[in-house]
């Protein structure tokens, strides 16, 4: 009597393994992986800059009034100094979540955290 079970050959295993690997890669590509990194987007009047929030960085950004100083520490970004008068941008503290932003309007510098949304995250933020 013939067995009801298919006996897997080497190529079957190879096909299954390869397919599984490709599927995992596509899931990672589409729903996680590199796209899931938190990134800091910085814009001034002349350029747009992007930094990973994972590092430790000091970033000077020029504006019409002078240099706005931005730091990235421990997965969060903040403005530590800016040549504006009331320093509202400095008082905003740290931003780390997607959609969080700080703007120094007098010096025309804008920071925004963005990342691809893991489940539970939002597409936009209302302040």
């Amino acid at each position: 009597m013939e067995s009801r079970y298919v006996r897997l050959k080497a190529l079957d295993r190879l096909a299954a393994g390869l397919s599984a690997a490709v599927t995992v890669f596509f899931f990672w590509f589409a729903y996680g992986g590199a796209d899931g990194r938190a990134l800091l987007y910085i814009q001034n009047e002349s350029q747009s800059l992007v930094y990973p929030l994972s590092g430790d960085l000091d970033i000077p950004v020029s504006g019409p009034l002078g240099v706005t100083r931005i730091v990235i520490r421990g997965g969060a970004a903040a403005v530590t100094d800016s040549p504006c008068r009331d320093k509202l941008c400095v008082s905003m503290g740290h931003i780390s979540g997607r959609g969080g932003w700080i703007a120094c309007l007098p010096n025309r510098v804008f920071l925004k955290v963005d990342q691809d949304s893991p489940a539970g995250d939002a597409d936009a933020a209302a302040y």
Partner: peptide
Amino acid sequence: WRVGVQSPGAPRGEF
């Protein structure tokens, strides 16, 4: 769309 509502008093971006 999913829109996060800012948590008052929390850093911007915390919902």
